[in-house]
Design a protein around this nucleic acid. Structure first.
Length: 267
DNA sequence: AATAGGTTCAACCGCGAGTGA
DNA sequence: ATCACTCGCGGTTGAACCTAT
């Protein structure tokens, strides 16, 4: 379903529904470079949005392996079960359901499951306790027992096929970490999460050590003004002749800020 | 066919936690 | 201790869609 129509606020930042073009730009950018700093990222990615809006769009919709569409009975049962235990902790519930965002789960609860649970409680309350309604009975056949959820896989996920690190590793890396990784050719587990399988096949050589070249023939459309932190790094190294310099926060932060100011056209 | 009212869900907003200077 | 900043969470909003009349 389409969301709200888009418009610009007083700062010239777009709000409202995301366009396909914006989605492509953001996806292309984050897929290649990760979300090193949400507040600085939008101009690099070529979108006139707030960092907050970009983060939300990515987390709720554009992330790899996101499921869109109907919830399965199992997913519903997991949500009900977890909500019963921990309440409105949507992000925690989402961490147990790979491919579902906290926003999606929150909506699912508010629109469907809350009513269902309330109805079940009303019905079961009017009968003798201990009798399960059909929906309630489903909870029992749910392969995931409540006790599993909290105590057996505190930081894990409930469904097979996705490594336990996925849900937590999507948190942001600092610009320094990411840039240091690039400079050192490190392919950390956290950064690898940002490169989905669908794009792996297109990569030639090591993504994190190969210099960035616009890939106009690939399936990932890159915006004309897609700015790369690689440009910054390359320019910085070239300008300061400091290839061997250890990239500390003190070095990177102010310089990155200056680079953004000088090279990125704020809309 | 028109439209009023209800429903859905993407996106926004405000706040608190965490971190670093 | 304080300030500034980013990130992430949970509640709320409102446009698009659906359904009943």
């Amino acid at each position: 379903m389409m969301g709200k129509g888009s418009f610009c606020d007083k700062n010239g930042l777009k709000k409202g529904a995301w366009t396909e073009d914006e989605d492509k730009k953001l996806t292309a950018y984050i897929t290649r470079y990760g979300h090193w700093n949400w507040s600085l990222l939008p101009p690099f990615a070529g979108v006139s949005r707030s960092g907050k809006s970009c983060r939300l769009r990515w987390m709720n919709y554009l992330r790899p392996n996101m499921k869109h569409g109907n919830f399965t009975e199992d997913e519903d049962n997991v949500i009900i079960s977890l909500h019963n235990k921990i309440g409105n902790k949507w992000s925690k519930i989402a961490s147990k359901l790979p491919g579902r965002s906290d926003n999606e789960i929150k909506n699912r609860w508010n629109v469907h499951l809350k009513k269902r649970v309330q109805h079940n409680q009303t019905v079961s309350g009017s009968e003798h306790t201990g009798t399960l309604e059909p929906d309630q009975a489903n909870l029992d056949v749910n392969p995931v027992k409540e006790t599993d959820v909290e105590f057996q896989h505190e930081d894990g996920i409930l469904f097979p096929g996705v490594p336990p690190s996925e849900s937590s590793s999507s948190s942001s890396s600092s610009s320094t970490e990411l840039l240091s990784c690039w400079l050192n050719g490190i392919d950390s587990a956290g950064l690898r999460d940002l490169t989905p399988q669908t794009f792996d096949d297109e990569m030639v050589g090591d993504f994190w050590t190969e210099p960035f070249l616009p890939d106009n023939e690939g399936s990932i459309p890159l915006g004309d003004n897609l700015w790369s932190p690689f440009n910054f790094v390359n320019d910085f190294i070239h300008q300061s002749s400091c290839q061997d310099m250890f990239m500390t926060d003190e070095v990177l932060r102010p310089t990155l800020d200056t680079y953004v100011e000088d090279n990125v056209e704020m809309n």
